[in-house]
C-alpha cells in the first residue's frame, strides 16, 4: 500500500470529506444502538428530533453551539500554529473565574461597560493561563501537550477550592457555588422563553474575526507559516517565538471567553459543572472543521446536535447518553482518515 499526494484537491472533495466522515461515524455507532436492542432509525430520528424538533429544542442546540464555537476556535487557532493546546477546559474555567471576580459586585458599571469588561477579563485570564506552558515550550522546550493537560486538573481543583471555600455563596442553601453575577453583567436573551443568549452573536462574530485574522492579516499569515514549517518561517524572517506566544494569547483568550459566555449568558454563577468537558470537545470541533474558523461554526452546530439529541434520545430509549461522546470521538478519527484521503490517494500494489 502506498500513499500518493494528489495534485489537486477540489473544493467539492474538501467539503464532502468531513460530511462523509461524520456519516461513517454515525454508521459505526449504530452498531452500539443495535446492541442496546433499539432500532437504529428510531434512535437517529429521536436524536435529530430532540435537537431540532421544536423551537425550544433548536434554541437549546444553538445555546450549546455557542460555547463549542468558542472552544473550537481556541483549538483551531492553536493547532494551526502546531501549538498543541489541550488545556481549553482549564482556560474556560479561568475565564469564568475572572468574570466571577469582577462581575459579582466588585464592579457596578452599566451593562454596556460591564459585559465587555467581563469578556476582556475572561479572555485575559484564559490567555495568561496558556501563556505559562507556552513560555515553557518556547524557552525551556517543555512539551506543551502534557503541561496544558495537567493544568486542567489543577485549575479544576482550584475552582473546587473556590466554590467550596472563599467564594462559596452563603445564600445558596449550602450548594457549592459562587455568588451570582449581578444583573448588569448578564447577557440579554435573544429569543423570548428560551435560554439562547447574546453570547451566540459574540461567538459568531469571533469566528468571523478569527477568519479575517487568519486569512487577511500578517499575524494570521505568520501563524500559518509557523504551523506549516517553523524552520522555513524562521528563515523567512517570521518571529517564530513571538508568533507562538501571540497564538497562545488568542487561543487561551477564546477559551476564556467561552467560560465567560456560559457564566454570564447561561448559568449566572460559577459552579463545578459549568463545563462538562467543552474544552476537550472543542478539539473535536476544530478537527471536524479542518481548522477553518468558519467551518467551526458548522461543526460546533453538528456536535451540539449530537449531544443535545443524545440526551433526549437516551430518555426515550435504553441507550446511554454517553453515545454522544462515542459518536464525536469516532467522528474525530473518521475525519482524520477523510482528510488523508482528500490529500492523498491510496495505491494498492
Amino acid at each position: 500500500m502506498r500513499l500518493e499526494p494528489r495534485d489537486h484537491v477540489s473544493l467539492a472533495m474538501a467539503i464532502a470529506g468531513p460530511i462523509l466522515a461524520v456519516l461513517a461515524a454515525m454508521a459505526i455507532c449504530s452498531l452500539l444502538i443495535l446492541w442496546s436492542g433499539s432500532s437504529i432509525t428510531e434512535a437517529y430520528v429521536l436524536l435529530f428530533k430532540g435537537a431540532l424538533g421544536s423551537r425550544f429544542a433548536i434554541s437549546e442546540t444553538l445555546t450549546r453551539t455557542t460555547v463549542l464555537i468558542l472552544t473550537g476556535l481556541a483549538a483551531a487557532v492553536a493547532f494551526r500554529a502546531k501549538l498543541w493546546n489541550i488545556g481549553g477546559e482549564g482556560q474556560l474555567y479561568m475565564g469564568a473565574c475572572a468574570a466571577t471576580m469582577l462581575g459579582t459586585g466588585f464592579l457596578e458599571w452599566s451593562p454596556y461597560l460591564l459585559v465587555p469588561t467581563l469578556f476582556l477579563a475572561g479572555a485575559l485570564a484564559g490567555g495568561l493561563l496558556l501563556l505559562v506552558p507556552t513560555l515553557l515550550k518556547t524557552h525551556l522546550k517543555v512539551d506543551e501537550v502534557v503541561t496544558t493537560l495537567l493544568l486542567n486538573f489543577i485549575i479544576l481543583l482550584l475552582v473546587n477550592y473556590l466554590v467550596f471555600g472563599p467564594w462559596k455563596d452563603p445564600m445558596a442553601m449550602g450548594w457549592p457555588q459562587a455568588a451570582p453575577i449581578i444583573d448588569q453583567g448578564l447577557l440579554p436573551i435573544l429569543l423570548a422563553k428560551t435560554r439562547l443568549h447574546a453570547g451566540f452573536l459574540v461567538a459568531l462574530a469571533s469566528a468571523f474575526g478569527i477568519w479575517v485574522l487568519m486569512r487577511f492579516t500578517v499575524w494570521g499569515y505568520e501563524i500559518r507559516a509557523v504551523g506549516a514549517n517553523p524552520e522555513a518561517a524562521r528563515f523567512a524572517g517570521v518571529p517564530v517565538n513571538r508568533t507562538i506566544i501571540r497564538t497562545a494569547l488568542i487561543s487561551g483568550g477564546l477559551a476564556g471567553m467561552a467560560g465567560v459566555c456560559e457564566l454570564i449568558g447561561l448559568k449566572g454563577y460559577l459552579t463545578l459543572d459549568l463545563s462538562p468537558g467543552f474544552g476537550y470537545t472543542g478539539i473535536v470541533v476544530a478537527m471536524l472543521a479542518g481548522l477553518h474558523p468558519l467551518g467551526v461554526i458548522l461543526s460546533a452546530f453538528f456536535v451540539a446536535v449530537v449531544f443535545n439529541g443524545a440526551d433526549s434520545m437516551s430518555r426515550a430509549l435504553s441507550v446511554s447518553n454517553y453515545i454522544a461522546e462515542v459518536i464525536t470521538a469516532v467522528s474525530l478519527l473518521t475525519v482524520l482518515v477523510s482528510m488523508l484521503l482528500t490529500r492523498y490517494r491510496i495505491r494498492w500494489k
Binding site: 500513499l3 452500539l32 446492541w35 442496546s36 498543541w84 489541550i86 501537550v145 476537550y280 478539539i283 473535536v284 478537527m287 435504553s318 441507550v319 446511554s320 454517553y322 453515545i323 461522546e325 462515542v326 464525536t328 470521538a329 469516532v330 474525530l332 478519527l333 482524520l336 482518515v337 488523508l340
Partner: peptide, 29 residues
C-alpha cells in the same frame, strides 16, 4: 496511515473512555 500522533492519541483517549462509560452504563443501567 501516518496520521498526526497527537490527534490520533487524543481521539483514542476520547473513544476508549467514552466507550468504557457507555458499556458500563449499558450493562448496569
Amino acid at each position: 496511515l501516518g496520521l498526526s500522533q497527537h490527534v490520533t492519541g487524543l481521539g483514542i483517549t476520547m473513544l476508549a473512555s467514552s466507550l468504557s462509560y457507555f458499556v458500563f452504563r449499558m450493562m448496569l443501567p
